[in-house]
Amino acid sequence: MNSKTFSTKLIKLRRERNFTQQQVAHLLSISQSTYCSWEMGSCFPNMRHVPSIANTFAVTIQELFDEKGENLSQLK
């Protein structure tokens, strides 16, 4: 999965739930600028954030990635 695909998915999930970037960042205990960088595709989240992201958006970890089952190895 490339950063653009992941960032697009984050934006879609956030908007579907009517969250602001600030609200998501608060729920994940990260700065808004960090979350914004994920949505902009300038970086991937650290692996330790992946379960929290899935929980925040009420999706599985697999659903955070495309239907091809992309490898999680691109995450830091």
Rank of each mutant, 00 (worst) to 15 (best):
M1E: 05
M1G: 09
N2P: 14
N2R: 06
S3N: 09
T5C: 00
T5A: 03
F6H: 01
F6C: 03
T8S: 04
K9G: 04
L10V: 14
K12S: 07
K12P: 00
K12Q: 07
N18E: 08
N18P: 05
T20G: 07
T20K: 11
Q21K: 15
Q21N: 03
Q22T: 08
Q23H: 03
V24I: 15
H26F: 13
H26K: 13
L27W: 10
L27N: 10
L27A: 04
L27D: 13
L28C: 04
S29Q: 14
I30R: 05
I30W: 06
S31Y: 11
Q32K: 03
Q32A: 06
S33R: 15
T34I: 13
T34P: 12
Y35N: 06
S37C: 01
S37Y: 07
E39Y: 11
M40G: 04
M40W: 01
S42I: 14
C43T: 04
C43R: 13
F44E: 04
P45D: 09
P45H: 10
N46S: 10
M47C: 10
R48E: 12
R48W: 11
R48S: 04
H49C: 10
V50W: 02
V50D: 01
P51G: 03
P51I: 02
S52Y: 05
S52E: 12
I53E: 11
A54T: 10
A54F: 13
N55W: 09
A58H: 08
T60W: 00
Q62E: 14
E67A: 12
E67I: 06
K68Q: 14
E70H: 12
N71P: 09
N71R: 11
S73M: 03
Q74N: 06
L75K: 02
